[in-house]
C-alpha cells in the first residue's frame, strides 16, 4: 500500500502535536505546586463578630492567644469561649490546602475539628475561624493575627 504524502504529513503532525502536549504538561506544571501553609506561631484574637455584627470594640479580646507550636503542641492564654478549653496537640487536615484545624486536648479521647480560612489580608496571613461555643443559634467569627517575633 502506498501512502500519499498528504496523509503522511497529517499523521506526522498529529503525532508531533501529541508529543508536544506531553512535554509541556510534564515540565511546566510540576514547578507550580501549592506551597505548604505554616500555621505554627503565636496567634492573637484581633476581631470578633457575633451573628454578622462586629463586636471587637465592645470588649478586650486581644489578650486571648492561641500558640500553635512547631512541635505540634498548642497552648491557650487568657481563655475566652473557644472550641477547646485545655492545651493539647494541633494539626491541619492538609498542609497545602488547610481547610480544618484539628485540636486534641491533652488526655482527650477525640479531636475537635474547626473550619478554617487562611487568607492574606493587608499583606498579613490571618486565621479566620467560625464557631458557636454557646447557644447553637449564635455564630461567631474569630479572626487571629500572627504575633510577629522581634
Amino acid at each position: 500500500m502506498k501512502l500519499s504524502p498528504i496523509i503522511v504529513t497529517l499523521l506526522l503532525s498529529v503525532m508531533m502535536s501529541f508529543s508536544a502536549c506531553d512535554v509541556f504538561t510534564n515540565s511546566e506544571f510540576s514547578e507550580y505546586g501549592e506551597s505548604i501553609k505554616d500555621l505554627a506561631g503565636s496567634w492573637q484574637l484581633s476581631t470578633v463578630s457575633r451573628n454578622g455584627v462586629d463586636i471587637s470594640r465592645t470588649m478586650d479580646f486581644s489578650k486571648f492567644k492561641l500558640n500553635l507550636n512547631p512541635d505540634g503542641s498548642y497552648t491557650i492564654e487568657n481563655y475566652l469561649p473557644f472550641a477547646v478549653k485545655q492545651d493539647g496537640q494541633w494539626r491541619v487536615d492538609d498542609p497545602q490546602y488547610p481547610f480544618n484545624l484539628i485540636l486534641q486536648e491533652n488526655n482527650a479521647q477525640s479531636d475537635v475539628t474547626i473550619g478554617l480560612k487562611y487568607p492574606i489580608v493587608a499583606g498579613k496571613r490571618i486565621i479566620s475561624i467560625t464557631l458557636s461555643p454557646g447557644c447553637y443559634s449564635n455564630t461567631y467569627v474569630y479572626v487571629f493575627e500572627r504575633i510577629e517575633k522581634n
Binding site: N51, I55, P81, G134, C135, S137
Partner: peptide, 12 residues
C-alpha cells in the same frame, strides 16, 4: 443581645 444565649456566649 442576643436574646438566646448561654454562659459561653458573648452577651451585651
Amino acid at each position: 443581645q442576643p436574646l438566646a444565649a448561654l454562659q459561653d456566649d458573648y452577651v451585651t
